[in-house]
Design a protein around this nucleic acid. Sequence first.
DNA 1: GGCCCGCGTCAGGAACGCGTCAAGGAACCC
DNA 2: GGGTTCCTTGACGCGTTCCTGACGCGGGCC
Lengths: 226, 226
Amino acid sequence: MTRILVVDDEPQILRALRINLRARRYDVEVAADGASALRVAAAQQPDLVVLDLGLPDMDGVDVIRGLRGWTPVPIIVLSGRVGSGDKVAALDAGADDYVTKPFGVDELLARIRAVTRRVVHSDNSPPTVRMGQFTVDFANHVVEADDGNELRLTPTEWHLLGILARNPGKLVSQRQLLHDVWGPQYERESHYLRQYMAQLRRKLEADPARPQHLLTEPGMGYRFRP
Amino acid sequence: MTRILVVDDEPQILRALRINLRARRYDVEVAADGASALRVAAAQQPDLVVLDLGLPDMDGVDVIRGLRGWTPVPIIVLSGRVGSGDKVAALDAGADDYVTKPFGVDELLARIRAVTRRVVHSDNSPPTVRMGQFTVDFANHVVEADDGNELRLTPTEWHLLGILARNPGKLVSQRQLLHDVWGPQYERESHYLRQYMAQLRRKLEADPARPQHLLTEPGMGYRFRP
DNA sequence: GGCCCGCGTCAGGAACGCGTCAAGGAACCC
DNA sequence: GGGTTCCTTGACGCGTTCCTGACGCGGGCC
């Protein structure tokens, strides 16, 4: 199902779009200001963003730039401003389309179809996981920071992180981790786990001493929280 | 250079667009009716079509369908009709954007940039790949430097580079490379890989010791970065 | 309060993988 | 048959990764 993030500070527009989009079988997330738009986009990984330029806290163009810093997600801009300068600025910042208010819902839906049609055909969505400022792509074995830098993991680190990430939110026992990564005869070498979990935290956690994603369950195992 | 086909039956609009687009370093082809538009598109293979819906010989939506029958080329529609039904029909027929007359040239140029930007990003597996100062053409098995000189690759080098280039950005395991190039019984002869990757880097990388495109992932495999 | 266990951290040495140079041998062209 | 190109194979230095041991800390238990 296509997930759409709608960003608008006017409750009635938000409500109208949500109802209309849900009726068309879209999965709808909403945000009422720029900061939460960026936060929800990072957490929910929408397939499309419908963005009102007139937000209370940020300039809409800055929201576009904030998104474009790390994601190619299609962006359709809604705006009451009809000036050509606004359109050019938004489109050149990375927006895919620009619709001026008042707009017809039919037209917006058609533009949503036009944009998603092109992206779906071209983009093969890899199974990717967000961890703080990092995007971990297990299919391509790439860890990319939001600033564009790449982070390198060793084969053992990939193996360990992969098992945890494939069980998001679930507790994975030490025995199972040791068995899967090192082999059956290493099931009591919990030292290995401590060693490599520390390495992963150093590389991926903002504060390795207070991990937000790679959690320890004392006496039991480890847990990955997305 | 980006080639744009402009389709319009009004000579002054055609003229204005041609001048403006040429000034922006676009390669411009023109057509004054639907039939010639389809003919020129087939002959010239434009990277973008700007299409006026009000043509003398055909309905504009049929021109869109005629193009979409065989090419995914981006289409930006110009139209004097502001009705929502026309927009929806054109977009659902396969148009990427819809601009109502009168329009600002700046806005149209920004929309052209927005559409071409996305298509270039999404272009999948071209038969030719850029690597530093070289252009690698896999269809014809030719490597040409920017200064016009040609570079020769051996069959094994073509085979190896081809597999990597068909998976841009993706990590390809040593096993898979060895299996595909040398055969199943060579999956552990990683020495071959080191040997041939070094040869490819000597030929294609500006600084073979610091490769920019043919990257090693220690313990895992190799990766081609365009 | 003292003890023990589990966890996190640091530091060293061993082992492995990678890049490079070099040379022998096979296939092909003239 | 001579020469060239290409593939295969060997040996070596170096950096990284992995393994291993030691230590400090905190919580639970007696």
